[in-house]
Amino acid sequence: MNASSPASPDRVPLSACIITFNEADRIADCIASLAFCDEIVVVDSHSTDATVEIAQRLGARVLLRPFDGFRSQKQFAVDQCMHDWVLCLDADERVDATLRGAIEAERGRGFGDAAGFRFARLSEYFGKFLRHGNAYPDRVLRLFDRRRGGWRGTREVHEAASVDGAVRTLRGDLVHHPYRSLEQQLQKTQRYARMMAQHDFARGKRATLGKLIVSPAWRFWRGYLLRGGFRDGWHGLVYAYVRANYVRQKTIMLWLLQNGQAP
């Protein structure tokens, strides 16, 4: 079924939504993995590359909206969908064959009594899929009935959907290609660290010397040793180290904010 064809009368109609900004190299694969959906909505933050043209050519309905936060952008996308059951992806994610089959099976049953479904996210990291540590299974709630939930709350980074009702877990993976390069990852984590520090500071959370020392170390050893990140070889080592550094950056920025300094 193409991106905008009408829903079959004997199954629950399903919308997919994606938020984008300069994703010309990745949006086609994302949309292709959503071919089983009845419509695909793309909310684009005024990309300067060919993202919009590619998405439209592949049958998606594209809306332009200035970016004001990940959560707000995703909830806007959900609100624009034609159907109440929605599947939310980022442009760097794809639904694998097993997950598609699981979604289709639940769809054939009318999604039962569930308000939403979660599934594992499998991340590719410089040529290798990480299957251990803090990286996997990294289950995310991305398929839900918008009448009973959505992208709620006030946190605009590390946002998460939530629903009122039962959440089931599906087989299969949401295949994730999060970073084009190490430099891009470092820039991305620094941006997220700043946004999280600002969010935590606004909520009254404060950094301590103990957290500054202990929290990054705990993040590394929990993921690399306790959760088996070492089993992913040097990829797992680099991933664990960069993620620990994210915690360090976030804590330092929070420390600066509480002492009247701009991060």
Rank of each mutant, 00 (worst) to 15 (best):
M1F: 14
A3F: 04
P9L: 04
D10Y: 05
L14F: 06
I18N: 07
F21Y: 15
N22C: 00
E23G: 05
A24V: 06
A32Q: 09
A32D: 12
A35F: 04
V52R: 01
A55S: 13
R57I: 05
G59R: 06
A60S: 13
L64V: 13
Q73N: 11
A77I: 09
A77Y: 00
C81M: 08
H83M: 10
D84R: 15
T98S: 14
L99P: 07
I103T: 01
I103D: 11
A105V: 01
E106S: 05
R107P: 09
G110L: 06
G112M: 00
G116V: 03
L122H: 01
F126M: 07
G127A: 06
L130R: 02
R131M: 14
R131Q: 13
A135M: 10
D138M: 09
D138G: 11
F144A: 05
F144V: 10
R147T: 15
G150C: 02
V167N: 06
G172S: 10
H176F: 12
S181G: 09
L182H: 11
Q190H: 15
R194Y: 01
M195L: 15
R203Y: 06
G204N: 08
A207T: 07
G210S: 13
G210I: 10
K211Y: 06
L212G: 08
V214A: 15
V214E: 12
R219F: 03
W221D: 01
R222C: 03
D232S: 02
W234E: 12
H235S: 03
G236L: 02
Y241N: 12
Q249G: 07
K250H: 09
K250Y: 00
T251R: 00
Q258N: 02
G260V: 14
